[in-house]
Amino acid sequence: MPGSIRRYGTEMVHRTEQSERIIEALAEGEAIRGRSLWEDAKRRFFRNNAAIGALICLGLVVLFTVVGPLFSQWSIEEIDWARMGNIAGEGHPSIESGHYFGLDGLGRDLYARTIQATRTSLIVGVIGAFVAVVIGTLYGAFAGFVGGWVDNVMMRIVDVLISIPYMFIIILLMVMFERSFFMLFVGIGIVSWLDMSRIVRGQTLSLKNREFVEAATTAGVGRFTIILRHIVPNLLGIVVVYATLLVPLMILVESFISFLGLGVQEPNTSLGALISEGAGTVIYGTPWQIACPIFFFLVTIISLFFVGDGLRDALDPKDR
């Protein structure tokens, strides 16, 4: 329009002095940092003493599984022939014998085995949660973003799958395809993405209809960039929270299967398997065989719950 062009022209004259002033103000503005939602969440999280305490506990457990083996004098398979005859009498935890956590029912070093079990459980938990989060997020985000009948069909499938008692399917898989670590991860991950996909789908649906996404469309931003710049960053919070809460659930599932003797195979072990063994031998007067794995199990699970809860309080958009 002619009118606006003329005005634009006069503006150009003032341009230099104005821009100098603006550049000055900008420099000042650079110094003032805004608080992003992430920083807000970080602050809230670090004010939550329970969550911080849990995080430290968790850190110690992880550290133990990494550094612990350096002090171990026995491997997980070695049998202490000298003491295996009298485990109740000589197999108790002691520093001199080098069995810090005592011996297990077969005369193997429980310290080494507990470290290995804790590590197994943590790895299964993290990888299982990772598989579930990746599948669930992609599935849910796709359904939510595409919408329409595609979304409808995809979510009906989830409805059907979610009402199947999944533990039996995992066990079926474990039995059929040899009890390998890989199968365990796949089995657990495959059945645990359902809840995740529902949550992510709901969130995506509501984000997709938010006005800032419409604003981005009118700003000419492409579909793919909208997903990357506007949808994903806003999904991240909820994904992080549920991923953290999934880890202890995955550990519970794995321990459950191992407790039944259907999980990882000897000589490898996991917390569920150790608890099962310890529970079986407690009549013979060897309480440490159950106390050690239960201790590590509880510390890990409760810490993870607290951390997840703290993250939810810090990140959940419901609070704002």
Binding site: L252, S255, F256, F259, G272, I275, S276, G278, A279, V282, I290, I294, F297, L298
Partner: peptide
């Protein structure tokens, strides 16, 4: 405290 911890 899942069942397999409670039971023992």
């Amino acid at each position: 405290l899942p069942n397999f911890v409670m039971a023992p």
